[in-house]
Amino acid sequence: MTMDLLKGVSNCLGPLVVASGEFRGDVTVEVPKARIAEVLARLRDDPNLAYDFLVDLFGVDNLDLYEKAAKPKKKTEGEGDAAEEPKPAGPPPPRFEVIYLLLSLSTNRRLHVKVRVPEDDLSVPSVTGLWKAATWPEREVYDMFGIRFPGHPDLRRLLMWDEFPAHPLRKDYPLEGRGEERILRYE
């Protein structure tokens, strides 16, 4: 079934699929970040796929993932095929990812669409025009990772307060914080 799904997705998207993988039945396709809105619109409007429901979108910071993966060679590999993390041959892959979880209400199939966001260009086109459901999740990604979403109607911080100086879900932000609550003064 997952093979059918991958085939259908690659038929629909053609060369836009940079990489694809499957793990425990979850299918992930990676697409170029500049064209994410177009990709999601195509997946939504394709009559066979009909991914018409945006479940969620969120960011992932892979700061130390590749270093960790490169080090322990003698460790036995897990059974996972790990299609999404091939060993870096050249320069390491971009630091951040934004993952979109899609669902088709008619076929109950799910698809993960992934874009990679390099550290020097922290922006992904907004998909709020396709689904209003992306409004708060995009604000949260901006809040937690500092990734901007051009085209978003109201890109403010969501969970942290407006003056908060960092992006707390980044891997280089310490768990105990940097004492922001003591530095900042409230009016």
Binding site: G78, A82, L101
Partner: peptide
């Protein structure tokens, strides 16, 4: 618990 490398979503 040491799961294999990978990512899943379960709802």
């Amino acid at each position: 618990i040491k799961p294999p490398v990978g990512e899943v979503y379960h709802a």
